[in-house]
């Protein structure tokens, strides 16, 4: 337990101490929000009006739709990139100090995962400050409720980062792989635009993509569903179906939890290999 805490605290200390990273972490999400929230909202709303007819289109607020998506996207980026600290630790030798100590290998993986998830959640929360500035209003309670879920999603995605980091030796290799993987994961998740009416193979990717469920849960918690007409609800992609059945928020959370646990176990195995 103490080992987990120590590893977690070290990563947080280093995050707050690294001024460049701290600054970057503020600017990146804001940039996304400007591009997707400000720049693209007109285009997207026009497109939606075309497909739904004027009545529904008027009601569709793209910024409201995309905001939770951008928070999820920020979580994904930060979580996975925080796992880069593992590769750094290997490069700078500190990983040996950790591995030669009697901390259990599970604790190492969990500590690293929670560290990355915490950093990611902090960045997500920073985005909340922008809510009034882009003319949105969310329910206070909804925002408070979504934070623990953001942490869970961050943990799952950090687990994914850990797994990459255990296979890939170099920083460059890691960044390449992540970029190749992250973009499709975001585009095929419903984070930035609804993923209705996709071709079958794409729909399959959407359904196995953990981000899909993460984004969906975040939208369901944050957007006031009662006040949205069924047409818009459908257009926003909020009626997520798997195997012809609508999935509940509870099932989605369970799925993400399972995903996180599986990844942390895999990461543990990689730490257990004697020469990791």
């Amino acid at each position: 337990m103490e080992g987990i805490l120590a590893i977690w605290q070290r990563d947080l200390t280093k995050f707050f101490r690294d001024k460049a990273r701290l600054f970057g972490s503020f600017t990146m999400p804001i940039l996304f929000l400007l591009i997707f929230g400000g720049g693209m909202s007109g285009t997207m709303e026009n497109m939606m009006t075309g497909s739904m007819g004027a009545a529904g289109g008027a009601e569709f607020n793209y910024v409201e739709f995309v905001f939770p998506g951008i928070v999820a996207m920020t979580l994904l980026m930060t979580s996975i990139f925080s796992a880069l600290s593992i590769i750094e630790d290997k490069d700078f030798g500190y990983m040996k100090e950790i591995l030669v100590s009697p901390i259990s290998r599970v604790s190492i993986a969990v500590g690293k995962m929670l560290g990355a998830a915490t950093v990611a959640t902090i960045q997500g929360i920073i985005l909340f400050i922008l809510i009034p500035l882009i003319g949105l209003s969310y329910d206070y309670m909804a925002l408070l409720q979504v934070i623990p879920f953001m942490f869970l999603l961050g943990s799952a995605l950090s687990g994914l980062g850990l797994l990459f980091a255990s296979f890939i030796r170099s920083t460059q290799g890691f960044q390449m792989t992540v970029q190749i993987l992250v973009m499709p994961m975001i585009f095929l998740s419903g984070a930035l635009f609804p993923v209705n009416n996709m071709p079958a193979w794409m729909d399959f990717i959407v359904k196995i993509n953990p981000i899909t469920y993460g984004v969906d849960v975040m939208k369901k918690i944050m957007i006031d569903l009662e006040g949205v007409s069924p047409v818009v609800r459908e257009a926003m992609g909020l009626d997520l179906m798997v195997f012809g059945r609508q999935v509940s928020v509870f099932e989605e959370i369970l799925f993400i939890l399972g995903f996180a646990v599986l990844l942390v176990l895999l990461a543990t195995l990689s730490f257990r290999r004697a020469n990791a």
Binding site: K14, R17, F92, G93, K96, E97, V100, S101, P102
Partner: peptide, 16 residues
């Protein structure tokens, strides 16, 4: 691991 201390050939401090 509990019984040993090791100074590796390469530096393993966290310099930050």
């Amino acid at each position: 691991r509990e019984s040993i201390g090791i100074i590796f050939q390469e530096n393993t401090l966290d310099e930050k």
